[in-house]
Computed example of a mutant assay.
Amino acid sequence: MFNIAIDGPSASGKSTIAKQLARILNFTHIDTGAMYRAIAYQCLKNKIDLNDEIGCTEVANHSVIELLSNGEVFINDMNVTQAIRHEKVSQGASAVSRFKGVRQRLVEMQQEMAKSKGFVMDGRDITSVVLPDAEVKIFQTADVAVRAKRRYDQLIANGANVEYDDVYTDLVNRDYQDTHRDESPLMKVDNAVEIDTTYLSIEESVALIMEIIESRGLK
């Protein structure tokens, strides 16, 4: 058994591809982005300013997050699966992820979840911080315009009233925040394989990663 760590910017297809890999390999998928969204949701629910580092860290330290195999997300026994997919919560996730205390708490949870083998974990700091010893490390990216179109289509399909230009601007801002924050910035580690999904389908991206796994003789 082995672990797969996938990092990359928003809307690069990380979670979708991670879920497919987990299904094929019969592994467990851990969507760390959902965990940050859950903390952001809890902060918003309790009317805590997302720029309040102490307040957001306090929320994280008093939260228990569960990720079920069917994709459902619970925080403190409350099902927030749908609630955390709203754009305001996604933006909030990028805000709270800046804080050292929040990241430390969630990294502890993530490492505890994946302390054995057989996990596919995706996020922003998985290859560099959470699972630095993962046998397979992927840095997944795509052109920002393509990522914005993917996110826009997803939001429209979910009934959101958004404009493409706003989604594009939000992604550009989130990319900057993710790569320039002091705590665990998004980066490609030296031993990660970069996969650009701009012109690849989900199936093609999954096939590429499966080739990497097979070429290393992993089972």
Rank of each mutant, 00 (worst) to 15 (best):
R150W: 06
K117D: 13
V206L: 12
A11K: 01
G55N: 07
S12L: 02
A60E: 07
K137N: 12
E211V: 04
K115G: 05
Q42E: 15
I4S: 01
V189T: 09
D49H: 03
A207N: 08
Y168L: 15
Y168D: 08
T169I: 04
N51C: 11
A93N: 03
M1H: 14
T141H: 14
A114K: 00
G159L: 11
K19L: 11
S90M: 12
I65S: 12
N191E: 14
K149V: 05
E214G: 02
I138W: 01
R103I: 03
A95K: 14
G118N: 10
V107K: 01
L25R: 10
I156K: 09
A207M: 04
M121L: 15
V102F: 07
V80N: 00
V193M: 12
L21R: 02
T16D: 08
M210F: 10
I195R: 05
A5F: 08
K117G: 05
K45I: 09
T141D: 15
F2E: 03
S128Q: 11
N3H: 07
I209H: 02
R105G: 01
T127W: 06
S94R: 03
S12E: 04
F2W: 07
I156G: 02
D52N: 15
R150T: 08
V96G: 06
G159F: 08
S215D: 15
I212F: 11
Y36D: 04
L44P: 03
I4D: 09
A192P: 01
I209L: 05
D133R: 13
Y176C: 10
E53M: 05
F139T: 01
N70Q: 06
A83C: 04
Q20P: 00
R174T: 07
Q177T: 15
A160K: 14
I48Y: 10
A11F: 01
D178G: 10
V59I: 15
D143N: 15
R147D: 12
I75N: 02
V189K: 05
H62K: 13
V167F: 02
S205Q: 08
D170H: 12
P9W: 11
D133H: 14
Q177M: 13
E211W: 09
I54L: 11
M35G: 07
I84G: 06
